[in-house]
Amino acid sequence: MLAVRMHRFGPPGVLVPEEVPDPVPGPGEVVVDVRAAGVHLIDTRLRSGVRGPMPALPALPTVPGREVAGIVSGRGDGTNPALYGARVAAHLGDAPGGYAARALVPAAALLPVPDELDLGAAVALVGTGRTALGILNFAPLSPADTVLIPAAAGGLGILLTQYASGAGATVVGLAGGPAKTRVVRENGAAHALDYTRPDWPARVREALGAERPVTVVVDGVGGEVAREAYGLLADGGRYLVHGWSSRGAEATGPGFVPEDEELKARSQSYERTVGPAMAAREGGPDPLGALQRRAFAEAAAGRLRPVVHRFPLREAAAAHRALEERGTVGKVVLEP
């Protein structure tokens, strides 16, 4: 079968299409014929060989990719025969293998995909959809809120924008360039502004006026954009951090964190929302699974509508390059 493998860490060019043996399912596993594999910024960090708290760097050679959607075509002992032919999606956890024509998946990790949901959209909900809902668990929204979302044209940013606007909040989405700001506006933002322009903070203030302060910032960019975004946050506001993409693959921290004294003086809160904090906030015996199921339910109800940027599987290197260079809109997906 076709798979994309990497034999060393490095730039996107280390992702090489190769023919490899088909996977053989063990007990409790199924084989999924992959129709869509999700590409995540974490994939680019792992490809680069950057060590971080999670997930751990894979042993080489490896087939990257931790999000898949497709059709069950084989099963191991202890799995339900009714799974044959089922449309499913799954997060593979710390075990990669998604950038391939077929992937091994624990049967317990499978999520059924409704017939009306495109498999590319489904894979965008597995990790990215659950993350959007998990982030907003930290700041339940109402029509009284104004939410500022940097990187609002990415796969996660679009879902955050849709969900926040659906909750009645006024959304200010930031993105790079007119094509991306148009997409942000089409997905529910009341205001969509280009954060490559140096005057974007002033334009946010002008768009909102004095009577509509920013009450929530949901930041995945970090660096100087985060600093400016925090400057727009009202007293009593909530600042949620889920990443720091502006600092590059080598970054292991946001580069900007508000001072405790200022947070206290202005009655603001600051939360890092990903990892164990997200699971603890959701609670229950299977918090990430619960978030995934909620994401699929929200999609079925039309409240989450993933935007997908598709690449052929053989062009995984180009997909990584485009993602790192901010040349994509929505969730990046590989299709064998």
Rank of each mutant, 00 (worst) to 15 (best):
D219P: 14
E282P: 03
E315V: 05
R247W: 07
P81M: 15
R51C: 08
Q268D: 12
E271K: 14
L60H: 08
P25V: 01
L334K: 08
R185I: 13
T170D: 03
R238T: 14
E228Q: 15
S142E: 04
A229L: 06
P11T: 00
M1V: 08
T128Q: 02
F138V: 04
P285V: 07
G26C: 04
P213D: 01
V333N: 07
I149K: 13
V221W: 10
G188V: 03
F296C: 00
L110T: 08
E271L: 14
A251P: 04
P336L: 00
P53T: 15
D22N: 15
T328N: 02
A139V: 10
G173L: 11
Y239R: 00
V221Y: 07
S245C: 10
G237D: 09
R321N: 11
L2C: 09
R51S: 11
E324F: 02
K180W: 09
V14C: 09
G222A: 01
A69Y: 01
V257E: 05
A95L: 15
S267Y: 15
P53S: 15
L141I: 01
R45L: 12
I149Y: 10
A37V: 11
S165D: 01
D115V: 10
V218Y: 12
V4H: 00
V105L: 11
R66Q: 13
S269E: 15
L117M: 11
H40S: 12
L83P: 13
